[in-house]
Amino acid sequence: MSRFPRKAIPSLAAFAVFMVAWECLGAFGSLQDSVLPRPSLVLTTLIRHRSLLWHHSVVTLSEAFIGFVIACAVAFILGMVMDNFSTLKNALHPFLVVSQTVPIITLAPLFVIWFGYGWMPKVIVVVMVCFFPVVINFLHGMEHVDQDMITLMRIMKASKMDIFWLVKLPHSLPFIFSGLKISASYAIMGAVIGEWLGAKDGLGEYMRRSMKAFAVEQTFASIVIITVVSLVWIWLLFKIEMALMPWRKTENTQEE
């Protein structure tokens, strides 16, 4: 793990070449900084506005994170309950699936009307967009559990709870995590879009101000932050996933 993955070198090199080319094109005047600011300009903006950006990032990240955590908790509990009561599952499952086709983000203005310009509507948007991928994946995972394993647990007189904790949940973990990774990128997006619609602070609000002032390098600075934060978030989830599922590591090494 500590050694640098060799496969990453070409893509990193490509990224570096791309950046240098971009910088050069900007420096020789082929690209206007008011349209596509040079990477160095974005970097200086990041440094110049660091305390302001830090403040806005903390606001956005808190909204995203709180919403994400609430969504996960609700998804977990609902998934567990729905799996236990098949009538409830049959009743709710179609709605869950259909609601996935509704672009939740379009509901955001409603929440602003109902809950004003504070953190609340943002968190609600985040919860709404994060919730579905997790619960759907969780249910999907539990549906695909090996029925023979459940039978084996029943032979050993396991209770429903035992079966859930020992078989269904561990089996569903990879499914849950692919849901979580989708939700993680939705979370920040949800918070930022919530802020676009009106907020006192947050990266979305910073972007809106930059947009009004035609400060393209500031908009780029926020894009950079959002991208980096999303990547770190997903990387963390990946690390947690690895730590929670040590048996999959042996699966991978056997494939090599």
Partner: peptide, 26 residues
């Protein structure tokens, strides 16, 4: 259920548990 010890046709060891945990399960 629960009157006999039954070994099914497939081994059905839980992939996410160590051998010791699997065997301790009953």
């Amino acid at each position: 259920l629960g009157h006999v010890s039954y070994m099914t046709q497939k081994d059905l060891l839980l992939p996410w548990r160590s051998i010791l945990d699997n065997v301790s399960l009953p």
